[in-house]
Design a protein around this nucleic acid. Structure first.
Length: 717
DNA sequence: GACTGAGACCTTTTT
DNA sequence: GGTCTCAGTC
């Protein structure tokens, strides 16, 4: 292959990123700067020019979708699919390692991956076992606690409870959970990473093997790595492997689930003399949109620093619309969508982005009223759907009877006369024998220690699953799936459900058969097992109407990585965006701002911002001010839209001073004391001199605007 | 074991 | 305001 095929389509910075040969390289890639392209071309460069064997390359992404895309694009560029190269998600790769080295990892050969739903059920079960009240110890918070520690690389034994009674219970539950997983041979998402990290530490020979193999590690979306992923990379890279990290600190929006923006900030020092290359030329948006995005993100501190630019047009100014209420806002958006559609912008080229899912309803109603097709991104994923989880649980039991999570799920689904009392008896027996639920059930039946009715029902269930199990070795995957749905009566059971729901469930189940038919196992003999692993690790991105021309609705989080000619960013109001929960903490506020940056940079040609002056929120009428982020956009980039007439006028909400600072001597997020209202946190500052005003969220009195000159606020440590 | 009503919840989500 | 969970009843 010609070097020019790899380098010619690139700009100078991209070319530098592709050919740079320092051992650690950080590519700071702004939104729309051709990040994936740089990554793909770098891999091609390594293979074709540096003659690195394909097996020497490890490329890590966060989502299956990104991994798939990278694979496809590498194949396209090289005109063949490179054999032996590892491209996958952190979890997929960790899983692969554990499967190969299950003994060294201390796992049973047929260990199962459990998803967060199974995890939650397990926690609930353990709470019952330990006689802890679910109202006092919410299962979700315990799950959160466990995953949080795993993300940080800590096992129950490493957690320091500081002798705090509450912490002690949490730690006890974490330990109990670890034990339960161990006994059942189950591995959750966090465990995949934690365990493969430990695998390397405990078996230096193995580590050395992989270090020698992977001379080049490439990581996408580096700003989203959490502590354990970072440690995993550090260990693997060792002192010799070359590592390329691609990411954008300004698009770090997953801090709340463990991602550490510091990782990208400390890469340069941690990975020894790293070189940094910035990709700042944007190929997506108009310069007006980029100027707006740059101005907003400039208000964040601690950035690595980057400024997007384009050779393209100035384009239209952003439009800001103040809706009377949320219906009015939705109406405005839908009218603009119709306008753009008449002007030859497809529905699918228009996206509505919002901060939280609850906002979609009003928009949907308005779209339905106008007869405009739409599609909501995100929401429940395919393999998370109830009917699919039921079917998969039967498949899991057929493969592996000791799968307690699957057992619990379908023991009485569809209902077959096995009630709570019987199940509780099974659980007790399992605890007593320290065995799996399946074995306990079998024992109870053969002991004849149950009522005849219960015993009969249980036996029927056991026979059913055994029949399915027997079919695993004789049938193809798709036929097996078909058999599962018929023999268990699941298809009929879900078909009976009322109305639209039942129909959708049946469709999904048929889609599951489809998926098994299209599944390509590495080996026929292990097809079921491979399929189950995929089902656990891959959400399954099939959406029935993925290709229809429909307006795209999604949260700002799910919009990352996508682009649309026309974008509506709705609900740009204080309390909504930035969200009330995040406004008080400076770090969280910065993350909200990055979210705003992500939102703005999704737009290619035209960006609308809108908010509602009054909004029903959880049944309450609320009145929110326009978002502070709007005020951070330069006035020349934005114009306010009034109904029936679009007037360009300067926004009188900005007074020359950047929001978040004035001469009151106070800072955002600072704790203050007021003689009447008590303690609170500074939410907002504006004006100066005698006009200087401060918004404070008081612990007891809620949020209030105060004139700084009279408020006599006392700053607290 | 299905149905019903009260009460709690309510930011973002991938693996 | 809407949704989901859970306990209680038939």
């Amino acid at each position: 292959m010609d070097v020019s095929t790899i380098l010619d389509p690139l700009n100078t910075a991209q070319r530098e990123a592709v050919t740079n040969d320092s051992r650690s390289l950080l590519v700071l890639a702004g939104a729309g700067s051709g990040k994936t392209r740089a990554l793909v071309h770098r891999i091609a460069w390594l293979l074709q020019v540096q003659n690195v064997p394909a097996s020497g390359v490890l490329a890590v992404t966060f989502t299956n979708k990104a991994a798939k895309e990278m694979r496809a694009r590498i194949g396209e560029l090289l005109q063949m699919s490179p054999q032996g190269m590892w491209v996958g998600t952190f979890h997929g790769i960790a899983h692969r390692l554990l499967k190969s080295h299950w003994q060294d990892a201390g796992l049973p050969q047929n260990f199962q991956i459990i998803d967060s739903d199974d995890q939650l059920r397990m926690v609930k079960r353990l709470l019952k076992e330990h006689q802890l009240d679910e109202t006092r110890w919410s299962p979700k918070s315990i799950q959160w606690y466990i995953n949080g520690h795993k993300d940080e690389g800590r096992r129950a034994a490493h957690v320091d409870h500081h002798n705090d009674p509450h912490e002690k219970v949490l730690q006890k539950m974490y330990a109990a959970y670890e034990q339960a997983c161990e006994r059942a041979g189950q591995v959750d998402f966090g465990e995949l990473l934690l365990r493969s990290h430990e695998l390397w530490l405990k078996h230096p020979v193995l580590l050395q093997h992989y270090q020698q193999r992977f001379a080049h590690i490439l990581v996408d979306e580096f700003q989203d790595t959490n502590a354990i992923q970072y440690a995993w990379l550090r260990v693997l890279a060792g002192d010799h492997c070359a590592i390329t990290a691609v990411g954008d600190d300004d698009q770090s929006i997953y801090g709340w689930r463990g991602a550490r923006i510091e990782n990208i900030q400390s890469f340069e020092t941690d990975f020894g003399n790293a070189q940094t290359i910035k990709l700042e030329q944007n190929y997506r948006s108009t310069s007006t949109i980029l100027d707006s995005a740059n101005a907003v993100i400039a208000n964040n501190s601690g950035r690595l620093g980057k400024s997007l630019w384009t050779e393209g047009d100035v384009g239209e100014p952003l439009s800001l619309y103040a809706g009377y209420n949320e219906q009015d806002e939705a109406r405005f958006v839908v009218e603009r969508i119709e306008e753009h559609y008449r002007d030859n912008t497809l529905y699918a080229e228009q996206a509505i982005l919002y901060r939280s899912n609850a906002q979609s309803r009003v928009l949907e109603e308005e779209l339905i009223r106008a007869g405009i097709p739409y599609r909501i991104y995100g929401g429940q994923r395919f393999y998370d759907r109830l009917e699919i989880k039921n079917a998969v649980a039967y498949m899991r039991l057929a493969q592996y009877r000791q799968d307690d999570a699957a057992f619990e799920r379908v023991i009485n689904t569809p209902t077959r006369g096995i009630g709570g009392v019987t199940v509780e008896t099974v659980r007790k027996r399992a605890r007593l024998d320290n065995s799996a639920l399946w074995d306990a059930a079998s024992a109870l039946v053969s002991d004849q220690s149950l009522t005849q009715r219960a015993s009969k029902s249980l036996q029927r269930f056991i026979d059913l699953v055994d029949d399915l199990g027997a079919a695993v070795s004789t049938m193809g995957l798709a036929d097996l799936a078909d058999l599962v749905l018929e023999a268990t009566d699941l298809m009929a059971f879900h078909g009976k459900e009322a109305g639209e729901k039942g129909r959708a469930r049946v469709e999904n189940l048929q889609e599951l058969i489809n998926a098994t038919r299209q599944f390509e196992p590495e080996e026929e003999a292990t097809a079921l097992r491979e399929f189950l692993d995929t089902a656990a690790l891959d959400a399954g991105d099939q959406q029935a109407d993925a290709h229809a021309d429909a307006v795209q609705l999604m949260t700002l989080h799910s919009a990352k990585g996508l682009e649309f000619p026309t974008v509506f960013l709705v609900g740009v109001e204080e309390n909504l965006f930035p969200h009330k929960m995040s406004a008080e903490d400076p770090d969280q506020l910065q993350e909200e701002r990055r979210l705003c940056y992500v939102g703005i940079t999704r737009a290619m040609k035209k960006l609308y911002l809108s908010y509602a002056e009054s909004r029903r929120w959880y049944g309450q009428e609320t009145f929110n001010a326009v978002s502070r982020f709007v005020r951070e956009i330069p006035t020349h980039c934005i114009e306010e839209v009034r109904i029936n007439a679009s007037v360009s006028r300067p926004l009188n909400i900005s007074n020359g001073l950047q929001l978040g600072q004035n001469d009151s001597g106070l800072q955002l997020g600072q704790r203050v004391m007021h003689s009447v209202f008590g303690e609170g946190v500074v939410l907002n500052l504006e004006g100066q001199g005698s006009n200087s005003r401060v918004q404070v969220n008081f612990d007891d009195e809620g949020s209030k605007w105060l004139v700084a000159a009279y408020a006599n606020l006392e700053a607290m440590g």
